[in-house]
Amino acid sequence: MSTALLLLITGIGLGAIYFLVASGLSLIYGLMGVLNFAHGVFLSLGAFLGYEVATRMGTSTWGGFAVSLLVGALAGAVFAALTERFLVQRLYERHIEQVLVTVGLALATVALFDGIWGTDPRFITGPGWMETTTRVAGANVPNDRFVAIIVAALVLLAIVLFLRRTRYGMIIRAGVENRSMVTALGIDVRNAFTLVFTIGGAAAGLGGVLASHYFGYVSPLLGQTLLIFAFIVTVIGGLGSLLGAAVASVVVAVLQQFANYYLWGTGDLAVVVLLAVVLLTRPSGLLGRK
C-alpha cells in the first residue's frame, strides 16, 4: 500500500515535469501547427543555467534554488522567443520546414551544450529539505516531488488564468480553434506565435530546473529524453489541449512508474502501448477536438 502511494506521488511528480514541457508543446502545436523539436533544448538550457546560478549562490540555500528557477524560466523564455522570431517565423505557414528548422536547432544546440558542459551528467543537490523525505501514510516520499507538483500546478493555474482573462489569451484560444478566422478579424497572429513560444519556453526552462532536482543531475540529453515523453503526452492528451496535456502527463507518468515497479521495468513500453491504444480508439487524443 505504501509502495503504491509512493509510486503514485512520484508518478505525479514526474507528470508535473512532463506537463511543464508538454504544455508549451501542445499550445505551440495547437496554435501554429509546429512540432517543436527544439523544446527539449529550452529545457536543457534552463537546467544548465539554473545549475550554474545555484552552484554560485550555494546549492543548499533556498535563495539559490529560487533564483535558479527564475533564471531557468527566463533562459527558456528568451531562447524560445528568439527561436520563434528568427527561425520559425521566417518559414511562416510552412509546417514541415518549421519542424526541420527546430530539428536542426536542437541538433546544433545539444552539440554545443556537449562542448560547453561536457557529455557527463553534472550532479546537483537542492536545499536540505528537498533532499529529505516526508512520511505520507507510511510512504517516504522525497520532498522534491512535492515542489515539482506545486510549481507545475501554479504554472497550470497561471496559464489558465492568462488564457481566460487576457486579450492575448483570448486570441490564443481562438487561434487554436481557427487561426485564419482570427487573422480575418484584423489580428496579427504572429505576435501570439511569439508569445506562446515564450510561455512554452519559460515553462520548459522551469521544468529543466525541477527535472535536474528530480533526477539529481543535468546533462545535454536531459531535454531530449523528456521531449520524447512530452510528445507522447501531447498526442495522448489531444494536440492543442492544455487540460489534455495536464491529464495525460499524470496518466503517462503514473503508468510508467507502476509498470516499472510491478511489470519488470516495462514503464517506457507501457507508455508506447498506451499511445497505440489511444490512437486506435481515439486518434484525436483524450481531450482533442475534431
Binding site: L87, L100, V101, L105, L107, A108, A111, L112, G115
Partner: peptide, 22 residues
C-alpha cells in the same frame, strides 16, 4: 567549442539549407 562539435556544424548547415536553399 562550437567548431570542435561536428554535430553543431552539421546542425547549423542544416538550418541554413532549410532557410536559404530549399
Amino acid at each position: 567549442i562550437p567548431l570542435s562539435e561536428p554535430l553543431f556544424i552539421l546542425g547549423a548547415i542544416f538550418v541554413l539549407v532549410v532557410l536559404f536553399l530549399p
